[in-house]
Amino acid sequence: MHDRSDKPRLAVWKFASCDGCQLSLLDCEPELLALGEAIEIAYFPEAATRPIRGHYDLSLVEGSISTPRDAERIRAVRRRSAHLVTLGACATAGGIQALRNFADLREFMAAVYAHPAYIHTLATSSAIADHVPVDFELRGCPVNKRQLLEVISAFLAARRPAIPAHSVCLECKSRGLPCVLVAHARACLGPVTQAGCGAICPACHRGCYGCFGPQETPNTASLTRALAALGLERRELLRLYRSFNANAEAFRAESERHGE
């Protein structure tokens, strides 16, 4: 076993997010002990209270950039980090809070806050990669625990993580799940969405919600034509593409084709 000081130093950072992806790390339970042996968890406010200053070998970043302060803070994180991996839809595409990108922020603030003048926020919620270079983006809302361990294990072994960028359909078919779109006429984003969740929703007879964002070469226009043929209307199509990954380029462009 490594001496404590020899172990790679891990930091987990939170920006605008719900903490769900950090919880996926805590949810690793049995593997957490092995993780603690392999790596020094040097900064993790969700799990510990004493921040350790200095430099980190691997930074896991959760959340999007939505305030001027965070836009500065992520640059500081990048400077402290040899490797920076983003976790989840917020950090990778701006998250559900990127719905603000399609609306008038002042209207939102006036509706929610008694004194909006005290709110210091950006007009958009954006991905970490829009602000600093990112070494790897792990998708999902939240990320998949097995994929998260794969990324950390790959980092420790200095190898490429085995995280495919193909569609959810390959996961459905590998599990032998009947296609909910073809057999049940349910709206499903699986064909344009990146795999990684293990096809959770189709396994529960639901269409895919696109939590892992666009697959490597998404043909949203063709899928939209098929969904429209099933009877989906403009507004339903807009909502389908505009959720956790609303600001991911392919979903953003497709949703705007069905905008008001």
């Binding site: 569609s167 359909c169 390959l170 078919k173 296609c179 699986g190 043909n219 034509r225």
Partner: peptide, 13 residues
């Protein structure tokens, strides 16, 4: 190619 989703379903089935 304009219609193909490149989803891989054809090859899986």
């Amino acid at each position: 190619a304009d219609r193909c989703l490149a989803c891989g379903n054809c090859t899986m089935v």
